[in-house]
Write a protein that binds this DNA or RNA. Sequence first.
DNA 1: TGTTAGCACTCTCAACGGTTGAGTGCTAAC
DNA 2: GTTAGCACTCAACCGTTGAGAGTGCTAACA
Lengths: 351, 351
Amino acid sequence: MVWEKELNERKRAILKSIIDDYVQSAQPVGSRTIARKHELGLGSATIRNEMADLEELGYITQPHTSAGRIPSDKGYRFYVENLMQIHSLAQEEIAKIKKAMDDRIEELDQLVKRASVIISNITGYTSVVMTPLLTRAIIKSVQLLVVDDKRILVVVVAGGGVVQNKLVKHDSVINEVSLSRLTQALNVIMVGKTIDQITMPMMIELQREIQVPAEVISPVVEAVEDCVRKIESTDVYLEGITNILNHPEFSDLLKAREILELLKEEDVISTLVRSAVHKQKFDFKIGSENQINQMKDLSVITTVYGSEGKNLGAIGVIGPTRMAYGKVVSAIQYISELLNREITRIFGDDS
Amino acid sequence: MVWEKELNERKRAILKSIIDDYVQSAQPVGSRTIARKHELGLGSATIRNEMADLEELGYITQPHTSAGRIPSDKGYRFYVENLMQIHSLAQEEIAKIKKAMDDRIEELDQLVKRASVIISNITGYTSVVMTPLLTRAIIKSVQLLVVDDKRILVVVVAGGGVVQNKLVKHDSVINEVSLSRLTQALNVIMVGKTIDQITMPMMIELQREIQVPAEVISPVVEAVEDCVRKIESTDVYLEGITNILNHPEFSDLLKAREILELLKEEDVISTLVRSAVHKQKFDFKIGSENQINQMKDLSVITTVYGSEGKNLGAIGVIGPTRMAYGKVVSAIQYISELLNREITRIFGDDS
DNA sequence: TGTTAGCACTCTCAACGGTTGAGTGCTAAC
DNA sequence: GTTAGCACTCAACCGTTGAGAGTGCTAACA
């Protein structure tokens, strides 16, 4: 915090007033407005002088001469680090969240998606969530179920009780007995291991020992791999994309569309959120701090979630730089805590 | 078709020209434009007279005096029923579709969603799809897998190889043997039946016979019911919602947002599409033919899909009334045929 | 030395009014 | 029945203008 010295109490108060006002009104805020609305006990001329200083220091800018001031990215940055008030959620909001989180969801992915929906609803911005990152999942059990004579359902259960399944189609005739033998053999080989601990020789061995045609074994093994891949993979979801349109900075349709197109680019959002998972606690990316040029008017706030000190993913919101940071932070905080509790509940005593 | 008598060849040609032009340009089209662009061998004054007639008959309207004409809903209706040309897709479009449909998907829901994505891509409109309606699904097998000592995975396979699973949590200790006994008993009761053929007495009987605590049985049975419900339930998905913004009629942000809000209302879309499933072939809902007031500038084109003469659901597009009907119809037709083929493949010889 | 009132100046925005151009309806001639 | 010609209408464009908000600067005051 090099800047801290730079700004005395009064400048801070004024900067805070400017930002609070601007966030609320979306209009450049002038000296008179501040003198009137916020009780700083100062005349507008004094504030004018201070504002000139703040502008020189780069915390605020003027869209044009004779307009009020708006915060710069640097201003917002200072705000979130030093000035922002995190007012706790309103009682009715808490009730709303609790209600939405009410039904017990046992699946991890469903759970985080639900949390994302709630954040989007409460904040009125677009929320973003990364599904749990379960690297090197340990296989706990593999099951094969006969669906019909042409199809087998492969079910893989991994550590933490995460389940994936996949249908495989084959053209051989296969009876229950040999299938259950295959199931057993697969379990012997795979249980307790991660997918990359399972080597080719093992599979060849398997193929040799079991009297099941290769046309069945190889798609089944592939399906197991697929399932593990799905378990280990993380996706990034956005909720409430159209909330973007609710904010006047995007009332220009061209801009709005540009943003919407951008948000559809999975990988952009993905890298954005993924970087957050290594941080602790809250991570702010304000305006041009996002490398991407089209995002220079957007901010991303994320926090990590997980269980027992282990980060599993990140969750947060995307909105205009002119965002109600305090409110958003408190919402994310509250919901991510609920989420953590739920994850601990279902993930529980498990590795 | 009462109207058919109303319009002679020339009026039809002019109406078609107006619509074709307007769909392409989004501008009211004047008599001179038609006289020039389309070779009808008529002067603009003649066309002017005919247009006056067409207006009186309600096929076209004038946004204001001294502007060109735009088609009315009645005009579009006549167009799709009598005038529209269905030009087959371009070679590259076919290639694109084939490529996108390339990977074999075995899950029904995934498949129709994929088809929806393709339609949205090809047409540039928002596509809508209703997932397969499998009423009174016949249970083909129920499996219970131990995930860990607190959780059981319930897997239900229904007719057509549709699979659903659900995790259930319980607090009892239960061993493999009694679980497999429960599995067997469940199968004896349920296989070959629909969910509403399974009665309370059966379950009580089950509970009495098997030495498995009620704390386990009842959540398991509930989970089975849940799975069946999920199998039988249909959802409606939209793809490419933001495509709406690509059309000038929604360049008014207020209008655009209204539409986007509307499309978020699941039940609106749901009832819209659901009504289509009882039709045969294509169904057009043009502008105010949609009962909902906010949809008076939107058209919905749907067709049914299914396997072997059995309708499973509907798929189509939502776009502005000023839509390239011909192109959309050909795209939907082509893709739904592909979809039908795939469904027949995976659904196959099954009830 | 810090604060403030006053004033001239700047810039946006909305309203106004004239002009342009596309398109119509009507009439009269072919 | 068809068409050329003409007067008329109306939205869109554009430059002008005045109001309003806000600034920077200066001079006076505590």
